[in-house]
Simulated scan of single mutants.
Amino acid sequence: MTSPALPFHDRLLAETVRERNALIAIPIIQEALAGRIALDDYTAFLTQAFHHVRHTVPLLMACGGRLPARLEWLRTAVGEYIEEEMGHHEWILDDLQACGADRAAIAGGEPSEATELMIAYAYDTIARGNPVGFFGMVLVLEGTSVALATRAAETIEHTLGLPRNAFSYLRSHGDLDIEHTGFYEQLMNRLEHEDDRCAVIHAAKRFYKLYGDVFRTLRDGRDALAEAA
């Protein structure tokens, strides 16, 4: 008697566990969770978060537009995601302003190389590959938020002595994404085509690496300035 196949969401988590653990083990993430983080680290994180979160709704719209008719139910879900995600990049700018950063300068600035490459890969996945692969990025960003966001916000707030209104993005996404994960699991378990499933797994592995690179390079600019001095 053969054992029943794993629900796809369980398979997705199982096949990406190595990449997920590698992301969580990145030194700056572990330092933040332990309270060993500077204000510049937090504002650097928020700055890069702004530059990729501002693309969330455009990416969702692009994904929904390229889904085939057989996935009409998934297009409907994308519409729900779009409604939920509207304006979240503005929350990040609010947090940055509460940290004393220049809101306008950040909004008009450019992302880091790592952030730019992650965004570009997301658009490329939708335009050139299987658009369902975009849900690999959703797994990485929402899963990381659930695992780390609220815990990190509490530690950083205590360590840096920042006001509560400097953490609206982290705190809201820790709570919001807990709600989203159940919805996401249901969606992934409805995927029937192996090509769609493989596209999500492949993209998730790539996005764990790409998102990890955003954290790995957060201090690059400051390190270069220190060396120049």
Score class of each variant (00 low, 15 high):
109 G>R: 04
176 L>D: 01
117 L>K: 14
34 A>E: 08
28 I>L: 13
155 T>N: 02
30 Q>A: 14
216 R>S: 10
105 A>R: 13
208 Y>F: 15
204 A>I: 04
21 N>W: 01
12 L>H: 12
173 H>Q: 02
124 D>T: 13
210 L>M: 14
154 E>I: 04
178 I>Y: 09
193 H>E: 15
39 L>P: 02
153 A>P: 05
32 A>V: 02
98 A>M: 06
172 S>E: 02
3 S>T: 11
184 Y>F: 15
16 T>I: 14
139 L>Q: 12
12 L>G: 11
220 D>L: 14
53 V>W: 01
82 I>C: 11
216 R>A: 15
121 Y>A: 13
44 A>C: 01
215 F>K: 00
21 N>S: 13
170 L>D: 00
98 A>H: 09
203 A>M: 12
223 D>F: 12
148 L>G: 00
225 L>G: 04
180 H>A: 11
44 A>R: 08
44 A>Q: 00
137 M>Q: 11
147 A>M: 10
212 G>S: 03
90 E>F: 14
60 L>T: 01
193 H>F: 10
131 P>D: 08
68 P>M: 08
66 R>M: 12
19 E>Y: 07
28 I>R: 06
40 D>M: 03
173 H>I: 00
32 A>G: 14
69 A>E: 13
82 I>W: 04
75 R>S: 14
228 A>E: 10
171 R>Q: 05
81 Y>W: 14
113 E>N: 09
161 G>W: 10
61 M>V: 08
47 T>C: 10
213 D>P: 03
169 Y>G: 00
144 T>L: 07
186 Q>W: 11
17 V>A: 13
88 H>G: 06
121 Y>T: 09
222 R>Q: 12
126 I>W: 10
88 H>S: 06
198 C>R: 15
228 A>Q: 12
168 S>G: 12
106 I>Q: 04
129 G>H: 14
176 L>G: 09
163 P>Y: 07
100 G>T: 09
124 D>W: 13
185 E>F: 03
95 D>P: 15
50 F>G: 02
96 L>N: 07
212 G>Q: 03
98 A>F: 09
151 R>G: 04
111 P>M: 04
4 P>E: 12
155 T>F: 03
119 I>R: 12
79 G>Y: 12
79 G>D: 08
78 V>R: 01
15 E>C: 07
14 A>K: 12
88 H>T: 01
169 Y>W: 14
52 H>F: 15
81 Y>G: 03
116 E>P: 00
91 W>Q: 00
157 E>C: 06
149 A>G: 03
16 T>D: 10
113 E>C: 11
162 L>P: 13
128 R>T: 07
85 E>R: 06
19 E>F: 11
68 P>C: 09
